[in-house]
Design a protein around this nucleic acid. Sequence first.
DNA 1: TAGTGGTCTAGACCACGGG
DNA 2: CCGTGGTCTAGACCACTAT
Lengths: 234, 234
Amino acid sequence: MSIYQHIFTDIETKIISGDWRPGDRIPVEHELAAEYRCSRMTVSKALSALAERGMIVRRRKTGSFVASPQIDRTVMDIQDISTEAELAGHEHRFEILARKIERLGEAEAQQLSEPADAEILRLQCLHIVDGRPNAIERRIIMLDAVPRAREESFASIPPGKWLLDEVPWSKAKHVIRAVSADTTTARILQTERGEACLSLIRQTWQNGRTVTYVEFTHPGDRFQFAGTFHPTAN
Amino acid sequence: MSIYQHIFTDIETKIISGDWRPGDRIPVEHELAAEYRCSRMTVSKALSALAERGMIVRRRKTGSFVASPQIDRTVMDIQDISTEAELAGHEHRFEILARKIERLGEAEAQQLSEPADAEILRLQCLHIVDGRPNAIERRIIMLDAVPRAREESFASIPPGKWLLDEVPWSKAKHVIRAVSADTTTARILQTERGEACLSLIRQTWQNGRTVTYVEFTHPGDRFQFAGTFHPTAN
DNA sequence: TAGTGGTCTAGACCACGGG
DNA sequence: CCGTGGTCTAGACCACTAT
């Protein structure tokens, strides 16, 4: 193990074990350098990594201190549906239920903070995992941001994956809610009206322009989000 | 702006703009060092930061390359209820509905991967935000891991916050589901039976031992999780 | 003012891995 | 083999900030 990793895990262990409590002062860099018989820069690298993880806070003049734990910070990785299904060894397919080009309209324009006359591609798509409906995907693609969507049928590639290839990088906002299935949703998902459903809304931007807005509605009895947060992991 | 930050944002911009596409090769370190008239180590620091963000992949001998984007990775920060309410400017209070010391039992023992005869403190707690029920908290605290919970009444501090002070650091697993309110839940939350509710389950460990297991049940019409993922942010 | 972290240099040696 | 990234050194100067 490298020296800076050694220093990193040593301090991490002291914090996790409770040996060093929140607010406790960590030896200054030159002391740690002497202790581990290495240069100050190597110590600095280890402490910077700990600071980036939020385990310590560093202040000029006063030194570095053990941070207050924040176990309530949840980090979740949500893959796109097809990837997630494949990873879990499930069979995934999808159907395009609707595909039309239109204008955004007032209500949605306000919701997306985009002009109401913006041209969009509206998609509705059903995802089927192991033969059972797993999600309705209702998606808006901004055609001025992604003009090539106009010619794409999405017959062979899910819209989410296609956009990943098309748009190089982006910022996304997520909202997770619980909603009751309305009649149409229940019929498509082959469940009961009023059934609790998990809704994931994602709006994606590139360079400040909305690229796409999508809502996935999952039947509550067949879907959940799970994630693990390791403040200790590497 | 420091030199390595300059290099970082330059490359980040090229990737976000699509100027450099996934799979493209990034100049080797000594080329970038010459271009920015700095040492190779400074370049290395910038590239390492980009690699840690998942924007590039680095391979010995072959060089560094633009990574494939993963915008479907969702990072969410979920604060604990009282903190979140305070941050949003809402009034928060809570009531202890039940508090008893007992043994874990078979079914839950299996679920938590803990022995069935383990002594636990079982808590049920109602969180009220701006005068309306916002969550039922059903919690199990392992008394062998947190013996001091035996004497704590939780009259003045919510169990979640108390545990944050008591347990220095930990690993946590989260599950988010949509469930229908049963009769009891609906009564406590002052909503209808069958109402869609958002359920957050969190199991917390320290040094491999379960510390606590908690389920928060939120009425779907009064609660959602929201988060933003910035692959570009600092 | 003095102590601390933030950054940088101009080298160095090593580990890895494709040819 | 040899080009690449991974790590490290022994300094250096600067920025910030508590006192």
